[in-house]
Amino acid sequence: MVDQSEAQAIAIPAQPAPARASTFSWAWIGVTPFLAFAVLFLIAPTLFLIVGAFQDAQGHFTLANLADLAQPSIVRAYRISLEISITSAILGAIFGSLIAAAAVLNGLPGWLRPTLLTFSGVASQFAGVPLAFAFLATLGRTGLVTYLLNTYLGFNLYSTGFNLLSFWGLTITYLYFQIPLMILIMTPALDGLKREWREASAILGASTWQYWRYVALPVLWPSLLGATLLLFANAFGAVATAYALTGSSLNIVTILLFAQIRGDVLHNANLGYALAFGMILITGVSNGAYIWLRSRGERWLK
């Protein structure tokens, strides 16, 4: 049965659309700078890169650059980059979500939440040389925490095999901005969970776990997925932090690319384009996967 009022609403004849006075909208003037910016600094360079990846130094078409990506050192760089990005994205997503959930859902004192959000806002943008320096000064071989642990607790961090200039060192350093970024994104998403949903599920007999399993997580899923992907891209494209921290002792793709562009050791601009093209491809695939997963996870959204 259809509500009567709806049936009536449908029967009301549509208002004639107001005649367009002119086809030109002044709003175009507002977005022109953005469009120009996008073309100049995003689309054009990307096309340039892609074209360059398929050219040799003389400008002839070649697949040699892409073939060169198969060198062991470059494959290793991609692998390390992916590993660090995926690990730091997943760990950042887990810890960030848990912290956001604790701040939003539980009866913590009122001042805690704004404090956490302000801190996260700052920390999520804290990267590059200052961040690398901060970590060297705390967890480096002669860092403050390393020193305090050693002197007062007799615990030698570096004897456990830990090294800040390593995979885990870089991952931990990245987590410094990944976790706060996740907190910033997930807080509004968690706020969007309505109290009625939790109460309705409880009164229908569901346990807390069942509420999360069947209601809260499915509702949060698109945000969680999107945020994790953003974290991945964030880590994958980072160069300054890694470079400042490890120099070239840990070869990730962006550092390799940086070296090519700066005209270091084995200068080959077209190989650099191919490296960048590979990164664009990986980012593109992960975005595609995101869109696909998301469209499956949110059929229920408008």
């Binding site: 309705a200 409880a202 009164i203 007999g205 229920w300």
Partner: peptide
């Protein structure tokens, strides 16, 4: 609440948005 076997209807917006009508009714 989940041990009382009580039915409750809220003022609004309490259906689970991620479930169809049938799944909502089936939830309990």
């Amino acid at each position: 609440p989940n041990q009382r076997q009580i039915g409750m209807v809220f003022q609004a917006y309490a259906l689970f948005p991620n479930m169809t009508v049938a799944d909502n009714v089936a939830f309990g």
